[in-house]
Design a protein around this nucleic acid. Structure first.
Lengths: 168, 168
DNA sequence: TTGAGCATGTAAGTTGTTACATGATTGA
DNA sequence: TCAATCATGTAACAACTTACATGCTCAA
């Protein structure tokens, strides 16, 4: 695909970070993903550095020299083409409406293979961890509008867990 | 990792299908994933066939000859080791409690980069598609206990969408 | 008899993981 | 001064996607 408009979700999220956090170094991008509470966004250097190189070649970001003390680093900024690609990804309703990957939902489809006791133990453990996640620094660190996203998501998930637990 | 206990989520879901649907052919497993409403579970033959070979080598499934008319096929069944691996994956509370990948949630973190009008248009479009998904055959096909999972999930998601839309 | 769908794969390429390497900087 | 962490990568490997190939079966 030499499409030059289609990007992956990881690439979209990276462009979003570059757009939002201004000139950012590769390391800063990496840390942002590592701080994510989701394992899906591992943010390993082996994923981020080649990705950055990739989207730079495609013309979505540009590197500018960013001296920090005695050592020179490269900070990335969004280009006009990058802005277009980001917008297209961001407002793609088809992709945004997808149900994605949910490790609990996936397991639920097979959970009648274990005893009711095991099933309930799992649901209770997940509920406890979800509740505890609200106090996790990774959810607390975000600035106000972002923090709201995480908190409403968690609150909603707890409601779903309650529904699942009640309906046997 | 020659761990022989750790499996990926796709491998776990495949083991779950084999356990639940009894002796199944590779093609039947593939179709199950293709019927999934989530793009995450693409179920391409290039993913399923090598995976099946992989977990057979690891001793999690066994193939038995399943004649179908004039043509001979292989149907897979779960082994005792496969059952152990499935159980470990299924009841792993740490992994089950992860928030996974949510294409809407991911976009929300960057949605203040676009106009309020664009943001609202996206949320409305996603809400509409989510509502329509409930009538989708892929959500309707499932047998009673499974269908319930999908329907409560969708209902809950609509509530979250309403919350997001109301809070500006 | 022919096209749709059943059924089973493989090859090439892309993307990601894990693990390693290297060196600078900084606070205790 | 020394450990942590900043900072930037790469190499080997694993897993997945896309595209293709092949042949069977069955209903119209």
């Amino acid at each position: 695909m030499t499409d030059n408009v289609t990007i992956t979700d990881l690439e979209g999220a990276v462009l979003g970070l570059v757009a939002r956090d201004g000139p950012v170094t590769a390391y800063a991008v990496m840390r942002s993903f590592m701080r994510s509470p989701s394992r899906f966004w591992s943010g390993s250097s082996g994923a981020i550095y080649p990705l950055l190189k990739r989207i730079k070649v495609r013309g979505f970001i540009a590197g500018q020299s960013a001296q920090k003390g005695n050592r020179n680093a490269t900070a990335f900024v969004l280009t006009t083409q990058g802005r277009d690609a980001l917008n297209a990804w961001l407002l793609d309703a088809d992709r945004a409406a997808d149900i994605g990957f949910d490790p609990l939902r996936t397991r639920l489809y097979f959970l009648n293979l274990v005893s009711t006791a095991d099933r309930n133990r799992l649901l209770d453990a997940v509920a406890e961890k979800t509740l505890a996640a609200g106090d996790d620094e990774r959810w607390q660190d975000d600035p106000p509008p972002d923090q709201h996203i995480g908190q409403t998501w968690l609150a909603n998930r707890l409601m779903w867990l309650k529904t699942l637990r009640e309906n046997q």
